[in-house]
């Protein structure tokens, strides 16, 4: 249970970074922290008591294995996170080119 709460704490730290920070790069770092926390949470869900890694190998009888499915899913989610992160960083660099600053209070040509 403590572990899950720590995941929640990590998630909140990331959310704080996204919502409160003024620097684009810090917002991106916050987004990264959110992604890590949710991946961590999903992997933890697959834990079985005294389970071992879900690897099949020769001459081993496996009694108790952790759930392999979350690990596969988290790998997919990491790939997606990588794509999103790369795109956002590219956009941030371009924004810096156009506005000459990373400060979001100075980047407001749109009213939104």
């Amino acid at each position: 249970m403590t572990l899950y709460l720590l995941c929640l704490l990590l998630f909140c730290i990331g959310l704080y970074g996204v919502l409160r920070k003024r620097n684009l790069v810090k917002m991106i770092v916050g987004l990264g922290i959110i992604e890590y926390s949710m991946n961590l949470f999903f992997v933890l869900l697959g834990y079985r008591v005294h389970g071992r890694a879900p690897l099949d190998a020769r001459n081993q009888d496996i009694l108790n294995m952790v759930d392999p499915l979350p690990q596969a899913l988290v790998l997919t989610s990491i790939v997606i996170g990588l794509g999103v992160m790369a795109l956002i960083i590219a956009i941030a660099i371009r924004i810096y080119e156009k506005y000459g600053t990373f400060d979001i209070t100075k980047i407001k040509r749109l009213k939104g």
Partner: peptide
């Protein structure tokens, strides 16, 4: 770019 950044986040 600004709109896209907002949307992406």
């Amino acid at each position: 770019l600004e709109a896209s950044f907002k949307y992406a986040i």
